[in-house]
């Protein structure tokens, strides 16, 4: 290591010298909402100039910052392929998975300079930078009993189901619990105890499953004051879902199941 890289490593904690800029790279400004709860009183904005390809994902930009510019940047990511749901964040004002948003879809029209703002998802306590405490989110998820409930004697073989019965809840099986929907909900931001869209989606997945017998109990839980009736149909959740789940539709189906006692 050269002296200059060693110095850079000690000051910022990053890995070392910046990699060569690929051909066709565009310099974009990435503005990140930073907050170190141990030292900062207030969150602040940090801007980084990053050379990137239009085919890069926003996650690549964050990696660039963390690996070469400022190693203290903190965010979650695991699979980086839109499956694990770790890297939900607010990109240009809307909740998205950083690994599923391409830079080319964020570039300003007419080759003007591009600024991308990245913030933590709203409504959950920030631990550091883009890393939030997901516990309240998972607490709501667990509260709806998201597992098979069946009181009949266990069959010796699989529990069979018709294709049509499976289709009934197909949409809500796609959830990866990334919290994009729940933290896009204005009601969730302000009402501390609302279950939130994701919990209702996962309740829907079992309520409408023909093999499940716990619909009554779950509907009871969701009929609570902080249950489905808090939904104001703003459709932010449907817009935010990286899996394309019709979240608001699922919530409405649960509402109607409650109103008309029909599952």
């Amino acid at each position: 290591m050269t002296a200059s890289t060693a110095e850079q490593t000690s000051s910022s904690g990053s890995k070392g010298s910046e990699p060569p800029v690929p051909e066709g790279a565009i310099t974009v400004t990435v503005k990140i909402r930073r907050f170190n709860t141990e030292f900062d009183d207030e969150p602040r904005w940090d801007s980084f100039e990053i050379p990137a390809l239009p085919s890069d994902r926003v996650l690549n930009l964050l990696h660039y910052v963390k690996w070469y510019l400022d190693g203290t940047l903190t965010f979650r990511r695991s699979c980086a392929h839109g499956i694990c749901g770790s890297d939900a964040m607010r990109i240009n004002g809307v909740n998205r998975l950083a690994c599923k948003v391409l830079l080319k879809d964020l570039l300003s029209a007419g080759g003007k300079p591009t600024t991308i703002t990245i913030e933590p998802i709203k409504g959950l306590p920030v631990h550091k930078d883009l890393l939030v405490d997901m516990e309240p989110f998972f607490e709501a998820f667990r509260a709806v009993q998201p597992y098979l409930i069946n009181y009949s004697p266990e069959p010796t073989r699989e529990r069979l189901q018709s294709a049509a019965d499976r289709e009934r809840f197909d949409d809500t099986t796609k959830c990866i619990l990334c919290a994009c929907c729940t933290t896009s909900c204005p009601v969730y931001w302000t009402d501390g105890s609302y279950f939130g869209p994701a919990a209702i989606v996962n309740a829907h997945r079992f309520i409408f499953d023909s093999r499940d017998e716990g619909a009554e109990e779950r509907l009871d839980i969701l009929s609570d004051k902080e249950g489905v009736w808090r939904c104001r149909t703003t459709f932010n959740c449907t817009d935010a879902c990286p899996r394309g789940i019709q979240v608001t539709k699922a919530i409405q189906e649960v509402k109607r199941a409650l109103l008309f006692k029909r599952v």
């Binding site: 207030e42 004002g93 959950l124």
Partner: peptide, 11 residues
């Protein structure tokens, strides 16, 4: 929590 000061949610 993360409510304060950020940008407006473009819902």
């Amino acid at each position: 929590t993360s409510r304060g000061g950020g940008t407006l949610y473009r819902g």
